[in-house]
Amino acid sequence: MSILVDKDTKVLVQGITGRDGSFHALAMLEYGTNVLGGVTPGKGGQTVGSLEVFNTVSEARAKFKINCSVIYVPAKFATNAIREAADCGIALIVCITEGIPVIEMLENYYYVKDKGARLIGPNCPGLISPGKCKVGIMPAHIHTSGAIGVISRSGTLTYEVVYNLTLNNMGQSTCVGIGGDLIVGSGFTDLLAMFEQDNQTEAVVLIGEIGGDEEEQAADYIRQNMKKPVVAFVSGRSAPAGKRMGHAGAIISQGKGTAQVKVKAFKDSGVMVADRPDEIPGLLQAALKE
């Protein structure tokens, strides 16, 4: 099955005429994703490759049955884009944009929730169900279809992990980047629940990092609710306190959110923790044999 995106996902690209939007709209199309069109206000009627550009999401929606929107607009306009998609009843909204003010994101979180939509991101690479559908910016060629679910707060570190999985003949059901911001639409526990239900997924890799307590919550959730094995990796063991490590959300503040505490939470919950990304395939194999 895979989770969230598959062959039936019909994708709209918001910010399709921008540098990243146009490049990735075509890359997704080439991968086989069912991309139907795009939106850039004021550029309706233009085309990007074979894709039609609309002025608004509702105009695109009038023409196509869209159930997923991926957002590549600059941070200044991202809140409007997210809300426009939610207002138009799009079920899955994936926001790639980095740098959205946190209070706006907090408001967006409740706004999207009230409209009944699911948000992935922001500040994320998107998600991919290999062989079926790619919604985002990840390099497609490193992925292969299989039984491992991947959830991560990071982009390139996820590629690193997926690369190691594929090298070891461990394909992926779905890989989801949840985003590196303080406030993101969907968290680890939301997705762990979906992977637990998904019949293609046999085990899950969770890639966390310093900051916040999402990993600790995930560890609790795994202990109480998951039958499928989970292997974790937490980056930032060497990060100094009080410094923002690239991601807005990756910061140890007032002694909270250290990698050590997160690793301990996982281990206490019986989750195996890798010290290096290239240890993950071995740990998964061991867990799946049990």
Binding site: G155, L157, I207, S235, A239, G246, H247, P277
Partner: peptide, 16 residues
């Protein structure tokens, strides 16, 4: 390094 997560992981492994 490119990417924050990979950059942190790289530092961690240097220490390791």
């Amino acid at each position: 390094v490119n990417g924050a997560g990979l950059a942190m992981a790289t530092m961690d492994i240097i220490k390791l």
